[in-house]
Computed example of a mutant assay.
Amino acid sequence: MAEGDAGSDQRQNEEIEAMAAIYGEEWCVIDDCAKIFCIRISDDIDDPKWTLCLQVMLPSEYPGTAPPIYQLNAPWLKGQERADLSNSLEEIYIQNIGESILYLWVEKIRDVLIQKSQLTEPGPDVKKKTEEEDVECEDDLILACQPENPVKALDFDITENRTVTEIEELPPIDHGIPITDRRSTFQAHLAPVVCPKQVKMVLSKLYENKKIASATHNIYAYRIYCEDKQTFLQDCEDDGETAAGGRLLHLMEILNVRNVMVVVSRWYGGILLGPDRFKHINNCARNILVEKNYTSSPEESSKALGKNKKVRKDKKRSEH
């Protein structure tokens, strides 16, 4: 496998895991090998009036140089309404070339459904729709146009002299509800951070706890928004769980969180969990981010990801 293909495959796997953690049962795997997935989107999870199923297939070039191939399935979606929604999704792709966009697509569709429910009468009972229902998809399968020049990541130096005074006090640390599976336990810890020094302080404080210090892995990631340069200072650490830190950071990027770090402790119970371990890491991280209100609204996420793509990786990893 070429290096580029391997990189795309890893980014796709990270996004798939993040989407599964964010949407749970709404996210469905149609064909794992072919990278085909479906997500059921409603205007209201508890009392849906309008529902749409988004089916996507991820080509090997996604997200680098090609968009997902998608299909919009809903008996009420026709004509101009379908065209408008398709144009909106393609516009999101154009504005975020090279980025993972499935989260933005799903939340854009949800926003459209919410607006529709506010302006119209309740829609059809989509729950009664069967898989055998004939859905016209001749116009559904759309490959968004590919601009010639993908967006290139820009490198910015982050100087020690920040315009915002760095707060050097130890921030408060919250602890999430543990998840246990086959004798392995996962627990997330969260702290607000505005500078790399606070990241080190939080890690040092956590390691004072003998139980956390004895964990098999303490995976962490953080994102700090630099207001003066309008870019993110971010980094992650696997702590022996290969690729876990990158997957955690990817989840935080999709959720567009800022000025926060998440540490996930795993106590290994002697039974290999395979890919499920990444699911548990992302799930407990997402749970605490949602609980502490770090997730932005879909509209804010879309705007922020469209404008603030500049990222600087912090090379100053803390030792522990």
Rank of each mutant, 00 (worst) to 15 (best):
G274P: 03
V257S: 01
R182W: 11
K307R: 07
E227T: 11
E133W: 13
D134F: 10
A74F: 14
A74R: 15
V290A: 11
K303G: 12
E291A: 12
E237N: 11
R82H: 15
Q118P: 05
P172M: 02
D46K: 12
T159C: 06
K279F: 01
A66K: 12
F278M: 00
R182I: 11
R247A: 05
I177R: 06
A66G: 01
L104A: 07
A188I: 09
K309L: 09
I94C: 01
V262H: 10
I16Y: 06
L52P: 12
Q198P: 00
F156N: 04
N161G: 00
R182Q: 12
D44E: 07
D235T: 01
A21R: 03
E136L: 13
I101R: 06
W105G: 09
N209A: 09
M201D: 13
I92E: 10
Q10N: 01
V112C: 13
D43R: 03
M57P: 02
Y220D: 04
A215T: 07
L203W: 05
K128I: 12
P48T: 08
N218Q: 14
K152P: 02
W105L: 02
D174R: 06
L305D: 09
T295F: 13
G306I: 01
C145P: 15
N287D: 14
V29F: 00
P75G: 10
E241I: 04
M1W: 04
E300Y: 00
D9R: 11
E17S: 03
L273N: 07
E291K: 14
T185G: 06
V290K: 14
K108V: 03
Q80C: 10
T163W: 04
Y225P: 05
K310Y: 00
P63D: 09
I16D: 03
E61W: 00
L143T: 13
T120S: 15
D44Q: 00
N161T: 08
P122Y: 13
G79A: 07
M252I: 05
L85T: 00
N13W: 07
N282A: 03
E299K: 05
W50I: 13
R286N: 08
D43F: 04
S214N: 06
Y294S: 01
G240L: 03
E81Y: 08
H189D: 10
V126Y: 14
S265Y: 07
I173A: 01
